[in-house]
């Protein structure tokens, strides 16, 4: 059995009267792909944001690689090895695709108080970025401004940026949302190739994608995790079926 890379204990987060996260306990093993599913409004994005440090929990703790990271904000967590994609694509729209990824490589390459040498001429940043673009299938689009890429390509670019920071943990918030079926199939194939060498927490609505990618699945309903298990176990779980049949026809 692999060691736990990330553990969350009793995470709570409320927005006014709404309990978006209600004492969540969660564990991710090293190298595991762990999907979090649940009906709309179940608190999936809140959960990801608590893990990434974009939100602070009202109570609870998060341990990452044996360290307590609860008090670290998102930039500090990113430097310890977190990387995330957002539900609404978050890229540098006025940079080219290559500039986007090269900047993510730069984030991983120590401090940036380097004032003189042109960053666009540094092969230490450009070469890994080009390789990463090739890997996600955007090699031919390197010099296109990110704003001009198709929606699916922008999602791919965001994943490429996350990977370019060489994270120990990848947090993906609906990576195939809004994609056509070809695009989403390509993304799933790409994520399948990452499986095993990259620890991933995946929030996703697309059940085909979830069941083909995940080693384990946790089901989040009204801010609580009601079940965790392998895809087979989750499929057979009566509570899960009830939650989904009652709330969401997917």
């Amino acid at each position: 059995m692999a060691d736990a890379l990330l553990q969350a204990y009793g995470l709570c987060k409320s927005f006014g009267a709404l309990r978006a996260s209600d004492s969540i306990d969660f564990e991710l093993l090293e190298g595991e792909t762990h999907a979090v599913i649940g009906p709309n409004g179940a608190g999936k994005t809140t959960f990801i944001s608590l893990l990434s440090g974009d939100l602070r929990p009202d109570a609870g703790a998060i341990r990452f690689a044996g360290e307590d990271v609860t008090s670290l904000r998102s930039p500090a967590r990113a430097r310890t090895g977190f990387a995330r994609s957002f539900q609404i694509t978050s890229i540098y729209r006025d940079f080219t695709a290559l500039d986007n990824v090269a900047f993510a490589v730069q984030a991983h390459a120590g401090h940036s108080f380097r004032f003189w040498r042109p960053a666009r001429e540094e092969s230490a940043l450009r070469d890994p970025a080009r390789r990463m673009l090739e890997e996600v299938g955007l090699g031919a689009r390197a010099d296109v401004p990110a704003a001009k890429l198709a929606h699916g390509e922008q999602r791919q670019l965001e994943v490429a940026m996350a990977l370019a920071t060489e994270p120990r943990l990848l947090l993906l918030d609906e990576p195939v949302a809004g994609m056509g079926s070809d695009e989403s199939q390509r993304m799933v194939e790409f994520l399948t190739r990452l499986k095993g060498r990259q620890s991933i927490i995946l929030v996703e609505h697309d059940m085909d994608a979830v069941f083909s990618l995940a080693d384990r699945i946790s089901v989040l309903v009204y801010g609580r995790i009601i079940a965790t298990g392998t895809p087979q176990e989750i499929r057979a779980n009566a509570d899960v079926r009830r939650a989904y049949l009652g709330e969401d026809a997917e």
Partner: peptide
Amino acid sequence: NSRFGMVLRAAKSNEARSRAIGF
């Protein structure tokens, strides 16, 4: 155009993204 400048421009373009990758 240096690494420093890229951080400056990136934070103007999309601060949430910059924070998410560690700046």
